[in-house]
Design a protein around this nucleic acid. Structure first.
Lengths: 221, 221
DNA sequence: AATGTAAATTAACATATGATTAACACAGAC
DNA sequence: GTCTGTGTTAATCATATGTTAATTTACATT
């Protein structure tokens, strides 16, 4: 569950947004002035800030400026009735991630929040843990051993991916041939045996089951 | 210089945006219908798409849907007079990066474009230290040796930047070809090998890892 | 058009790599 | 026991890649 700091001094609007987003399964920390907001930011693990600009003690621009100066890069959205282009510019210059003008539809706010969270997910690397210190990063095509990259050959890589993507599924020799060898290449059963041997050394012997005459199966759990 | 595809069938508006952004040092490829846009997208290295929705042959939503289906993740901004919240939602669902309502201020468009480009620059540092007295200034695109600028050829420069901007990431031959050679040039594998050789002499031999049959990887740390 | 120049490419050769094969081991079926 | 399918490892060898120099190309200058 994501934690959202909501800085908005209008009690009514603050509550409306809070209820709506809580209904959408976010945890909302409401603040009604800049000091409160700063306290919350220090005390809670905040994933996103929704910031009004005209709030007591310190305006939202200065607030975010300070936060960013402290190397805090938590995503921020300004929600404000200041809607001159210069205000928008200033907002983005300070380092906000989006700028929404009042009045706005709650659903649009939700959409823009979700976009920001989705964006972050994309930047996270997708890698899966294998046993004994090995892990495999699909995106980078890297095999890691205790966080050190390991070289792995193309066909072995393809076979490893094929196996990992089909856990507990029987892969016939033909399935594997079609995946590893191009249409104009001649598949080699001997090579396959050699590759399986190599990969068993990575995944562990018992992780790949042999089905005589038929193929192999990657056994998960 | 960033290349921007502009899909907008209103001739007047298309030209206004084009002139404004060209003044701001972007290269604009104008399209007046979905087919033109698709042609440009295939032929040019596009860094950002500005998409109107109501355009001839195919609407902007369907256009982006198709582009995304082809695993093209070039950032996109919808610029449109469709401004119901559902339209905004649909836009973000398809995978746009921002959604601007008409009428809009050109400066705000610029700000939102710049935010997207800034977001992409993972490497915020302006210059990085390489080993043995070399350093590279991203902003000025200069290679320095003991603080003296060094001459480096354009394609080698592009390759160096590509590598430095994608640390530990596998860059396929095709990735590199697309970056170094224009659409109407024929990439040369031999040249690439020569460039890699040159850059290895700068970065150090072991900084660029070869993945046979696949591509190269700049190894950081 | 002739010349100069820098960059890009090609060429030629050296080196390294990885797909395959070969050789042998082992296990189970008969 | 033999036969057959598979496992394992090392050796082979074609080919991908590395390197440097030579050549071509592109383009500015005279």
């Amino acid at each position: 569950m994501k934690n959202i700091l909501l800085l908005e001094d209008d009690l009514q609007l603050n509550d409306t947004i809070k209820q709506f987003l809580e209904y959408k399964n976010y945890k909302i920390y409401p603040a009604y002035d800049a000091y409160e907001a700063k306290d919350i930011l220090y005390e809670q693990k905040i994933d996103l800030m929704l910031l009004d600009i005209k709030v007591p003690y310190q305006n939202g621009f200065d607030f975010l400026t300070e936060v960013r100066a402290e190397k805090n890069s938590t995503p921020a959205i300004f929600i404000t009735s200041l809607n001159s282009v210069d205000d928008v510019t200033r907002g983005f210059d300070i380092g906000c991630d989006d700028y929404i003008r009042k009045p706005f539809a709650l659903k649009e706010l939700l959409v823009r929040i979700e976009v920001i969270f989705k964006r972050q997910v994309i930047n996270l690397q997708k890698s899966i843990d294998l046993n004994n210190g090995y892990s495999f990063d699909f995106e980078k095509r890297l095999l890691l051993y205790n966080n050190k990259t390991l070289n792995i050959r193309t066909k072995e890589m393809k076979l490893l991916i094929l196996l990992l993507e089909n856990p507990n599924k029987l892969l016939s020799y033909n399935d594997i041939f079609n995946e590893l060898w191009e249409y104009d290449e001649i598949p080699s059963h001997g090579s396959l045996r050699a590759y399986i041997s190599t990969i068993r050394n990575i995944l562990g012997k018992d992780k790949i089951e042999t089905l005589k005459y038929v193929g192999y199966r990657y056994v998960k759990q």
